[in-house]
Nucleic acid binder design. Structure first.
Length: 422
DNA sequence: TCTGGGGTCCTAGGACCC
DNA sequence: TCTGGGGTCCTAGGACCC
């Protein structure tokens, strides 16, 4: 009885994605510490030398930055100075005032995102979208470009498929040794990296593993421009020494709790008693921690999905007072509802559950939502329901953030012909 | 030098129905 | 009348991810 062939799952992660896209248009910044983030105000200034016609640009630095922005990405040179994504720009400025600051340009990043995903899809079609800069790819049945495909049973072949519905191609695949399968995966991974580079000029890091969990961890091990193969047998030597936070799904809270419990490596977590973990973290999460630390993960590569919710939110430049800034709050609230309605129409959805989110000056966050009878994509209907939600919140502090969300989505009229957004 | 904006999933209690 | 259970929907908060 042939064993089930091992799955081969790749994780492809673009290297310092936003920063790398910016370096394509500002090549003079290569080798310098650069962070991306903040508002529109620090756009580079261009000057043309009248004598030579040469364009020179002046870039903003972090020094003197004032505001509430965070870094979305930092180049590797900036990381060496202690800068990293999700860091407040004020803090980053204190660490590295001379680092260059560029505003985020999501339209550009989305264009490059589409390009790299299309390039990957030309090599291997079963792709799971995990956001703007990373994907999972199922390589189990993928051969490198140029290799002969596994033979198919010809339509007029009178040889019957085997009883379980497999054809001779499957039979040939089952004769592939595990070692050959890994060599095949390495060639496919190389082809993926080459295709992404050809399409975008950008590098990425790719790992191939028996599942998504290990592939995700492994793609970090050789960054940037990495290529990593990690078999189940390699988990003890290459995964167990790492801190638990490297597991996708162990965040700041669980990481700190594990640390307090004396569990500082994935290996220690793997050796912890299942019953004890369940005691500490609850039945579901405790059992998952045990499985994850041992490198087990059966999740499929999900090639399509429907959105669950759409939202818009804004953090104000200064905290707003409900009494004194009533008009401004009202105007922003209306804008958010209009933008949300626009998003719904552009994406072709209507929703029934409308909610608001408020963050107060002390960072406490409250949400309220309300489900209406029929799905809507109308800005006024959204605003009406959202207003009812706001009325259920005690507004006793100044407001830092306001958001509007819609869920329980159903497909609805999308943009009409010729109206597609970029 | 406090902490963006867009998401997903889970938990848990209560309402309501069978 | 009392007890009991399951299923689904709604709501609020929170952890986590990119």
């Amino acid at each position: 009885m042939p064993a089930t062939p091992p799955r081969l799952i790749a994780h492809l992660d673009m290297d310092a994605f936003y920063a790398s896209v910016e370096l394509l248009r500002y090549p003079e910044l290569r080798g310098k510490p650069v962070v991306i983030g903040g508002g529109r105000r620090h756009q580079p200034e261009e000057a043309v030398d009248p004598a030579t016609g040469r364009v020179t640009r002046r870039f903003a630095t972090l020094s003197g930055y004032v505001g509430r922005g965070v870094a979305t990405t930092a180049t590797y040179e900036a990381r060496a100075l202690g800068l990293h994504s999700a860091q407040g720009l004020m803090k980053a400025a204190a660490l590295a005032p001379q680092a260059i600051l560029l505003p985020t340009d999501f339209d550009a990043y989305r264009r490059y995102s589409r390009l790299f995903k299309a390039a990957a899809a030309s090599i291997a079609p079963r792709i799971e979208d995990r956001g703007i800069d990373e994907i999972y790819i199922d390589l189990t049945d993928v051969r490198p470009p140029g290799a002969d495909p596994w033979p198919e049973v010809a339509a007029d072949d009178d040889a019957l498929p085997e009883a379980d519905g497999r054809n001779s191609g499957d039979a040939q695949r089952e004769r592939e040794t595990e070692s050959d399968a890994w060599w095949r995966a390495r060639d496919v991974a190389k082809a993926l990296k080459a295709a992404v580079r050809e399409a975008t000029g950008l590098t990425c890091s790719v790992a191939v593993a028996p599942n998504k969990l290990i592939a995700k961890i492994a793609s970090e091990l050789d960054k940037p421009d990495g290529l990593t193969l990690l078999r189940l047998d390699d988990v003890p030597t290459r995964i167990w020494p790492l801190p638990p936070r490297r597991i996708n799904g162990i965040g700041p809270k669980a990481g700190a709790k594990l640390d307090a419990l004396g569990i500082t490596t994935i290996g220690a977590l793997a050796r912890a008693e299942l019953a004890w973990l369940i005691d500490q973290f609850g039945r579901n999460y405790g059992a998952w921690l045990h499985e994850a630390a041992n490198g087990h993960d059966q999740r499929e590569v999900v090639t399509s999905s429907e959105p669950r919710s759409i939202s818009r939110e804004i953090t104000f430049e200064r905290d707003l007072s409900v009494a004194r800034d009533r008009d401004e709050l009202s105007r922003i609230f209306t804008d958010l509802c209009r933008q949300l309605a626009g998003d719904l129409r552009r994406k072709g959805y209507a929703g029934r559950t409308i909610g608001v989110k408020l963050r107060f000056d002390n960072f406490r966050t409250v949400t309220r939502d309300r489900t209406i009878a029929a799905p809507t994509q109308d800005a006024q209907a959204i605003r009406d329901a959202a207003t009812e939600c706001v009325k259920r919140i005690a507004l006793e502090r100044r407001i830092r953030l306001l958001g509007v969300r819609i869920g329980t989505l159903t497909p609805a009229a999308g943009p009409s012909e010729g109206e597609h957004a970029a």
